[in-house]
Design a protein around this nucleic acid. Sequence first.
DNA 1: ATTAGCACTCGAAAGGAAAGAGTGCCAACA
DNA 2: TGTTGGCACTCTTTCCTTTCGAGTGCTAAT
Lengths: 360, 360
Amino acid sequence: MISERKKKILAAVIDEYVRTAEPVGSKAIASKAGLGCSSATIRNELAELVSLGYLEQPHTSAGRVPTPMGYRMYVNELMEKQRLSLEETEDINRRMNQKLRELDDTISDVSRLASQLTDYPALALTTRTAVTIKRFDIIYVDANTFIIVVMLSDNTVKNKLVKLPVSVDQKLVQRLSALFNSGFTGITEEAVTPLLINSTERAADDTMGVTSVIAAFAIEVLTEAQTPTASISGENRLLSQPEFRDPDKAHRLMGYLSGGGYILPPNESMDAAGEIKVLIGPENVAEELKDSSVVIATYDAGDNTKGMIGVVGPTRMDYSAVAAKLSILAAGLSRRLGSGEAPPEGMHNKLIIKGDTGNE
Amino acid sequence: MISERKKKILAAVIDEYVRTAEPVGSKAIASKAGLGCSSATIRNELAELVSLGYLEQPHTSAGRVPTPMGYRMYVNELMEKQRLSLEETEDINRRMNQKLRELDDTISDVSRLASQLTDYPALALTTRTAVTIKRFDIIYVDANTFIIVVMLSDNTVKNKLVKLPVSVDQKLVQRLSALFNSGFTGITEEAVTPLLINSTERAADDTMGVTSVIAAFAIEVLTEAQTPTASISGENRLLSQPEFRDPDKAHRLMGYLSGGGYILPPNESMDAAGEIKVLIGPENVAEELKDSSVVIATYDAGDNTKGMIGVVGPTRMDYSAVAAKLSILAAGLSRRLGSGEAPPEGMHNKLIIKGDTGNE
DNA sequence: ATTAGCACTCGAAAGGAAAGAGTGCCAACA
DNA sequence: TGTTGGCACTCTTTCCTTTCGAGTGCTAAT
């Protein structure tokens, strides 16, 4: 266990370091933190915090800098769960309200918003599982052309224009429309078997292979709907961070991010919605992120739609503020994407912060 | 007029400078360019090229660097119109073939591809004008719900799920579907007048305001289809350029770009498809681009669909290679987006390079 | 246990010298 | 008249040394 005073000092070091990006010395802490003792005392404590592994010195005669372990301690126990002022919260919600259209647009809008709010690169991801088709329609345009319209279990609608090299009878299209609407609705992608397709083809008396075209579209739509959509915004904001003044370093990370780099540890699924996850420096799996930090909020929009929204930055990050903002964004997404209409606002979900507490 | 030898020397300076990013001296040129004269002669010529304004010296005892005017001369007259090898051309076409889905996806895929090929940030933009509705369908789902499906003049299909707070008779929906299909097809957005909406409402005997909902969607679709779509990729590639080693400078430009900064001079419209436009340094209108260059290829995909694809980089840019690659991309887009099916490959459009020849 | 004091360390900043690339110009030359 | 070798000159880049100062660690006093 670590003494109360050490905690206060550690917190003070981190706060100051986050603010200034410079190693912080004993004097600065003595004058700032409200603990009534001199810089010499602080020096002793600091030395111990170094040997405990929470802080380190760039070199013998410099101030102290938090280690990842120090940040971890800070995030887990020390940091005051920041609550944004009411205005800030309302501002975020207002800005989110303006931006609600199609899911795919929403996801990129929200990542852009997250980046704007935090001034770090932001990244949003949505996954849907167990999507089924709710309704199937085929609109006959002309003998070679028809439009397939599919309504999915999450009430999104997809369509496709199909042009065939051969002429098709309108009656056949009608029969197929009916058959698909009864046979292909309510089932998941795996249930679309060749067997099912074959029997549909026979039932429709389809000799021209139209059935398989439509079935292919059904599979495509289901697959696509279940393919995670991701969006990254504001990579350039990395450049305003002093730790990325080295263009090579910045380039490496930005390249990784815009290449769709995976942020989440693969084993950790996005279950617990409403939680905030913090990954500090070496806790990240990706080599490119080993000296950066990631803060992620997950949300659950119902209909098997889940997602995360997160930001990436240097380990010297204002975890508290970022977590608070992401939390509001995630809660907003859960509400809005979920029920279609927004429940009463103003309630944030509570800020449960969780991280990789494992060995380090 | 400028002597033949000066042209050769200027071209040599630019080639070398583009390659190395270092001021180039008389000796390097003497040994490289195949004109049989000594470095002293070259020095004299260089001095004249400086006073003519094509070159400049960073400081008295340094080599020469091209001015924007020098680049302009190079692009207009000196540069050999580079033809890519057959393999390269085929490679690009192949990679383009893999990426053809929805228009919105295509546009971002192609900008990504352009960025990969040139190693500069790339930007693509598509505009459509005079879009009309070709076909109008309304699918009745239940008493409160229906799906509007609209097929546009460029054969894209849009849909929307509408939920009403009131119950609607299926007959009314059918009547509206027919009315819209006759009254709202083949007309542009401006032709959708309140008058037309009103008369449709009366003709359908609609007392529940459904007509206006559908009309609103029609307007929305037409507006959206005519809103230019833009996409930027590979901003981070800027960081590999020596002239953007200064993070602040890089940040400024990247911020401008990802903020959807306008690249084209507003007065110049995207008419002449197949042309390549080069804007060098101060020829750009945007303050943020005054010391960068932009190369743009335009394409015409028929159906009033036009667009551009371009890259942004330092004025020290391999204009020739970039122009050649963009040209192939633009030609590919014209072919593919246009007719729906690709005409014979292997023909590039010719490389007409045009730029701001005005005062400078 | 805390604190004042002080010698010590080490990086960052400032100054200066040397190196080197490249020019400009002059005088010789074809 | 255009070209060339030669050479002094200029200016940046690099490297070394010195100085400066922030911050420490330790000791002795409280």
